[in-house]
Amino acid sequence: MSSTTRRDLLGGLSAAALGLGLPSLAQEGEEQAEGLAPEPNDSAAPSAKRANWGMVIDLDLCTGCSACVVSCRSENNIPLNGRADEARGCEIDWMSLLPLKNGGSSAADSAGAEGEHADPSEFIPIPCMHCDNPACIKVCPVNATYLNDEGLVAQIWDRCIGCRYCMTACPYSRRSFNWKHPEWAEEHRNLINPDVATRPDGVVEKCTFCYHRIRTAKEKARLDGREVQDSELQQLPACASVCPPRAITFGDLNDPESEVAHLAASPRARRLLEHLGTKPKVVYLSRDRREAPRSKAR
């Protein structure tokens, strides 16, 4: 990401609007311009161009260890599901690790009649896809969920009326409903992350791409008087920050220099249920046996 300040922001925007790579047009009269600038509705961030948050998950590196799943639960105060709720299918999951049946080439996969008992050839960690054309937001009767201007499918817990239309609409089943008031054993309350609100019963919840961490990173950059660096973003969400094989990369898809944009352009890149036109911003790198461009770092 190029190093810009809030002053360059409007210039950048105008230039982008004109489709020109011109230097800032707002160098003069910036005081007034700043006063007139509409506040981004979810952030006071001084980023230059609007970010478009996305994630790349390299299935060739993923070992199926589930660290991302536990990390997400710990970071986002997801209450314990417990045996009974899991059995009833009432569990809450923002990040799941699911088996992916994808054809298959091994002897076991092609075992004919017993094919239905074949195990997957891959595991697939599934957070919210943060679609650019999300099905879920279109059915929300109260605008509790919407696509924000940084490409996140956001959800306002307080506004949700619990109709669960969005859960039905999401083709990836990435939304969960709070069937009961979240409870923690007294001692386990020490595990609650103060940066993330707990959700009451009767509302739908979902992955936020750890928005609170993005906000903190921006805040920190602002205090340092600089731009958020791609290196700060790559492993920012809780799932990515712990991933032992570094299979998860996060960042700004609008920044052509970012690692995430570079990886998303790989010939191994695929998206889930792409034909539905949801335009998911979680990109998977397939476990292609052939050589294909890998991370720049390597």
Binding site: A67, V70, E187
Partner: peptide, 22 residues
């Protein structure tokens, strides 16, 4: 060895510390 990574057991460690049945 881990270079910043943590496995599921490491992440669940606080539940060892704060196990209500300790």
């Amino acid at each position: 060895i881990n270079r910043g990574g943590v496995g599921p057991r490491g992440l669940a460690a606080p539940q060892v510390l704060y196990d209500p049945d300790r």
